[in-house]
Design a protein around this nucleic acid. Sequence first.
DNA 1: ACGATATATGAACACATTATCATATACGCA
DNA 2: TGCGTATATGATAATGTGTTCATATATCGT
Lengths: 118, 118
Amino acid sequence: MQNDIREARKTLEDFEIENGSSDEIDDETLFIVTQTFKALGDPTRVRILHLLFKKECSVNEIADTLDIRQSTVSHQLRFLKNLRLVKYRRAGTTLFYSHDDEHVMLILEQMINHACHS
Amino acid sequence: MQNDIREARKTLEDFEIENGSSDEIDDETLFIVTQTFKALGDPTRVRILHLLFKKECSVNEIADTLDIRQSTVSHQLRFLKNLRLVKYRRAGTTLFYSHDDEHVMLILEQMINHACHS
DNA sequence: ACGATATATGAACACATTATCATATACGCA
DNA sequence: TGCGTATATGATAATGTGTTCATATATCGT
């Protein structure tokens, strides 16, 4: 436990060194950061991403599994796609979605872990 | 680069193993996760947290440094305090705020790094 | 107790977000 | 070409969010 905290702090300092002690965040970076976190700030999108973390899914599969309307799923997938957090491949009339940003998925799973172990 | 991705995937799999392949996220965890990400999904709050990452600050110091009204800063600090993302110590009439969740700060700095290196 | 300064709070407004319904589009197949 | 299924889109209504102004509270020094 104590070790975890010290480990985290060490990594934070590493970032500072890497960045050359970044002062204020530039506007473009700030925009991307907040947009991405906004994407993760909604239960529906988190559930979809968490599902896609485990396996590629069609739109209807997502809707059925999570008990969300197809239209809602589609809207949220477009949102996630614009941020390049998901991608899809076509198979006939069916679209199979999967995640497209390993780093963000790692962050999501980290947060889920952090939240349920506390 | 390629190595980074493989490293991330490995860590994701580790989470799966740790969790015993968690299927759906339970409601309470989902709530905490989305609330926390929501906190990080606003430019003002991100700027405040990023500042507090570097040093403890009084409310006015934050307001002056980031050019935000005192009232706005105070409101956002309350928001962050409710989520236990920040804490404060009193020194007379001045309140010095600092961050209070190493793990979330790590995630924030990770995302900033990810965003500006892309 | 009073004035000065630091911070917090509440109400109000503008704006963003989300889910839903109805409908459109796209593809495969007979 | 026309039908059935899968997905996308647009408009709308309900709700949530962020900032601001005005004002309240709190602490210190005199």
